[in-house]
Structures are given as structure tokens and as C-alpha cells.
Design a protein around this nucleic acid. Structure first.
Length: 488
DNA sequence: AAAAAAC
């Protein structure tokens, strides 16, 4: 199966070839012919499946008959409107439009907030056939009369479930009310909640349902890992992982904007170059941060959920949940930044005892019991009801993850940590229970030898660790990381 | 309970 078999025109085939693609992905195979036929589409697909091209390509082809080299604005009315929930996502879709429209005289632009309106207004006045936008700024332009939507014949709602979460529904409704009823509408969503179905009912006309991935499924190329750790030790565990097991680019998710900045600064203090992206940064900083990460300049990007959805980063091998997301669905989205397009990825979650129920919810959603990994001196107990201390133990089912917390007898079934740690912490202690004393094996669960000296530059300058040891270069890692028995 | 999105 080739792109030509899907009925795409030569101008688009050339652009696809230029971009280096030869074979359509499943969602492209399903969606492109249907969109070309003019039907409405309700599309469900996990990210990294080529979803964006599955609508940008046929949209461009549908508009191609209207392409014009004329400079008259009247010859370039807005014919296709694509809405996305975040600015970065809008930009990404816009880039896809640019990539595939290079051999067609169609004009496109991207409209979003946080930047000066005047340049956008100017481009809109000159006329564009395709507008990719976030809802707020689009409405702003509508009010300023710099854009007319009464010629829109194609509407795409990307990441519709996210739009719902973000309370965009009133904006969407307002925008819908300005569009002609005679139009083709495409709605893409990672999940099909009742809310989404309701929106689809109002927005779509006899839609064809395309569901490539089973709902709420996660890519099978992703390896999930859980590291049980007290909250207070998370940052040092992360530093440790970044210096040992995480040997490549990583996207680290946190729960708040403040926490995002704080963790980024801490990593930088530990000589780990890291950048941050969150909603309180200027749009320029956001754009630059994402750019640096996408082109590989930045190894560690710390992000809020602004980066949780849809962002397509080539070959991202690691995602870390420094804090578990608030909803299980968000876990699916976050980790979907890795393991894309059939590539392998690792999703590492640092889980504090208080996040236990959250973890259980995630495991229930993804129908997987995530193997627990431990690093000597960083582990915490009580993260899972009966399997704490398990190293890479693969437990078949999660049948009894819930409702067993009062059963002290679970202890006897608790597997031991791979590092030979026999004193795995008993469950049933209060949360303030410190990590109990344990044997000081120098080789950690991940095979990393703590006793081995390492570069001075690796030393974290954690304020909580005692900085008064003379020769930094010869200090054992465990000590540097504030480790052995410090909290015993 | 936080994040995102218009000024």
C-alpha cells in the first residue's frame, strides 16, 4: 500500500516523498480516502500514529481546486479551519500543513495567543485558505474583524477530548455558530467519553468512525517502570537516574508550573542542563524550549501538562513522571510522547506512597501492572498494596490491587528487591515511616555500583547534603546523592 | 487539584 493508492494527487505525493514517507500508517490508510470522499469523520487514534497527516493531506487535496496564485485577498478566503488545544500543538499541525502544501499555491497560517496580534492580522488580511488556531485568539481576531469564517468548508477539531478538559466548549460553540452548515467536519480524540460523543453528535453529520487503536490503549513499544520513592527524595533519585539509567533524551513531567521551574533549577545546580516549559513562560521561551528539545540540543525538558498531549518529538526514548498525573488518561497522553511510530520508549514514574491509589487507577486503565524498580536507598514502601520491593517482577494481573490495604498478611507474599535486600519495608506503617535501615550493598537494583567513584562534575549540590567533604572526585556516589543511611 | 487558553 502506497500513498498513491489512497488517491492523493501528485503534488501531495511529491511532498510526502520529500518528507521521507513511503508507506501510510493505519490511520492514514483509513482516514485519507474517507476525508477525500467528503464525509465527516470521528477519528480515534493514539498519538504517534500519523494522525496529523491523516487529515492535513486530504484537507489540502480538497482545497487544491481552489488554489490560486492571485495576490488578491478575495481569492484566498479561509476554507479550512483547524483547531488545537495548545499553541505548540497548533504550531505542529501548521508545520505539517506547510510541509505537504509546498507544491500547491495554497496559503496557510497559524493563529495563537501570547504573541503580538498585528503580524497575524496582516497575514489574515492578505488572505489564507487554511487557518490553524487555538480557540481564544481566533475569536479575538473574529471580534476584530480580521478574519471571516463564513467560507469555511472544512473544520478539524484536533485533540477534542483535551479541548473539553480545558473548558473550550463555549468557545468551540461560538466558532461553530459562525461556520456554514454546509461543511465537512473532522473530529479527532484520543478517548471517546460521553461528552465527546455529545459534541460529535452536534458537530458531525453521519460521521464515519475510524478507530485505529483500541480506546485508552497505550503503545506496546513502551516499557513502563515504577520507582517507589518518598516525595522528599524524588529530586535526588531523578538526578541519580539521569546520571545512570536514563542515558538519553528525556521529558520530565511535573504537576505545577512552580514545581517545573524549581526542578529545572535544581537539575541545573546538579550540572544537568535542563530547560523548562509551562504556561507561565513567555511564548518565546516556550517556543525556544520546545525547539531546543526537538532538535536535540536540550537533553532534559521539564514540563507541565502543557506538553502532555500530541507533541511529536522524534525518537524520544524516555518520559519521566516526576509526579503522577491527576487523571489516568493524562498518564496515557504523557507517556504517548515516547514509543511513537513503532519506536521503543521507557515511561518511568516516581511514585510516592500517597500516590498509591493514583497508580492503581492508571494500572487499571492501561490494564497492566507496572513492574516496580528500586534503587538502593531511594525506595519507599506502601506504593503498591502487596508488591513493594519487587524489582522487575512481572505480575500477570492486577486483580487485587484494591481493597487489601488492611491485610498485614500481604507481607509474606512480598517479593524481595533484586539487590538482595531482605529487609524490604513492611506495609501497614504510617506514611511518615522512614525508609528502614538496610544492608549496604554497593550495587543497586539497576546494576549501578554506588561505590564506584565518578567525575567531580557529577556531584549534585543539594542543599540538604553535607558539602564539607574534601575531595569531591573521590567521593562515593551514594554519599554524594545524600544516600547511605542518612535518613535511617 | 493543576494545567491550558484572549487581552
Amino acid at each position: 500500500m502506497t500513498f498513491a493508492d489512497l488517491g492523493l494527487m501528485p503534488e501531495l505525493l511529491r511532498a510526502v516523498e520529500d518528507a521521507g514517507y513511503s508507506e501510510p500508517t493505519p490511520i492514514q490508510r483509513d482516514a485519507i480516502p474517507i476525508v477525500l470522499s467528503g464525509r465527516d469523520v470521528m477519528g480515534g487514534a493514539q498519538t504517534g500514529t500519523g494522525k496529523t497527516a491523516s487529515f492535513t493531506l486530504p484537507v489540502l487535496q480538497r482545497l487544491a481546486p481552489h488554489a490560486s496564485t492571485s495576490t488578491s485577498p478575495a481569492r484566498h478566503p479561509v476554507r479550512a479551519l483547524i483547531l488545537a488545544p495548545t499553541r505548540e500543538l497548533a504550531m505542529q499541525v501548521y508545520e505539517s500543513v506547510l510541509t505537504y502544501s509546498r507544491y500547491l499555491p495554497l496559503r496557510a497560517t497559524c493563529i495563537y495567543g501570547g504573541v503580538d496580534m498585528r503580524a497575524q492580522t496582516q497575514i489574515l488580511r492578505e488572505g489564507v485558505e487554511i487557518v490553524v488556531a487555538t480557540p481564544g485568539r481566533l475569536l479575538d481576531h473574529v471580534q476584530q474583524r480580521s478574519i471571516q469564517l463564513n467560507q469555511v468548508k472544512m473544520l478539524v477539531l484536533d485533540e477534542a477530548d483535551r479541548m473539553l478538559d480545558m473548558g473550550f466548549i463555549p468557545d468551540i460553540r461560538r466558532i461553530l455558530s459562525m461556520l456554514p452548515n454546509q461543511r465537512q467536519s473532522l473530529l479527532f480524540s484520543a478517548t471517546f467519553s460521553n461528552e465527546i460523543k455529545k459534541l460529535a453528535d452536534q458537530m458531525l453529520n453521519e460521521p464515519q468512525l475510524i478507530e485505529v487503536a483500541r480506546r485508552n490503549m497505550v503503545s506496546e513499544t513502551i516499557e513502563h517502570q515504577v520507582y517507589p520513592v518518598e516525595s522528599s527524595r524524588k529530586r535526588d533519585l531523578l538526578v541519580h537516574l539521569l546520571k545512570t539509567t536514563i542515558d538519553a533524551q528525556v521529558l520530565v513531567f511535573v504537576d505545577t508550573k512552580f514545581g517545573c521551574s524549581r526542578l529545572t533549577h535544581y537539575l541545573n545546580r546538579c550540572d544537568i542542563p535542563a530547560d523548562a516549559i509551562h504556561g507561565d513562560k513567555s511564548q518565546q521561551q516556550r517556543t525556544e524550549a520546545l525547539e531546543g528539545f526537538k532538535n536535540g540540543t536540550t537533553r532534559v525538558l521539564v514540563a507541565t501538562d502543557v506538553a502532555a498531549r500530541g507533541l511529536d518529538i522524534d525518537d524520544l526514548p524516555y518520559v519521566v513522571n516526576y509526579v503522577l498525573p491527576n487523571t489516568s488518561e493524562d498518564y496515557v497522553h504523557r507517556i504517548g510522547r515516547t514509543g511513537r511510530a513503532g519506536k521503543k520508549g521507557k515511561a518511568i514514574s516516581l511514585v510516592a506512597p500517597e500516590d498509591r491509589s493514583n497508580l492503581a487507577g492508571i494500572e487499571k486503565l492501561i490494564k497492566l501492572t507496572i513492574p516496580v524498580h528500586t534503587v538502593e536507598d531511594f525506595q519507599a514502601s506502601g506504593v503498591r498494596d502487596h508488591s513493594d520491593g519487587a524489582s522487575t517482577g512481572r505480575r500477570g494481573r492486577n486483580e487485587d490491587n484494591a481493597g487489601r490495604r488492611s491485610r498485614g498478611s500481604a507481607d509474606s507474599a512480598a517479593p524481595r528487591s533484586r539487590s538482595g535486600d531482605e529487609s524490604a519495608s513492611p506495609r501497614g506503617r504510617s506514611e511518615r515511616t522512614r525508609t528502614p535501615a538496610r544492608k549496604k550493598s554497593t550495587v543497586a537494583a539497576d546494576g549501578f555500583d554506588y561505590a564506584k567513584p565518578y567525575e567531580a562534575s557529577d556531584a549534585p549540590k543539594a542543599p540538604s547534603t553535607k558539602p564539607d567533604t574534601p575531595s569531591r572526585a573521590n567521593r562515593p556516589v551514594a554519599f554524594l546523592l545524600g544516600g547511605v543511611g542518612r535518613k535511617g
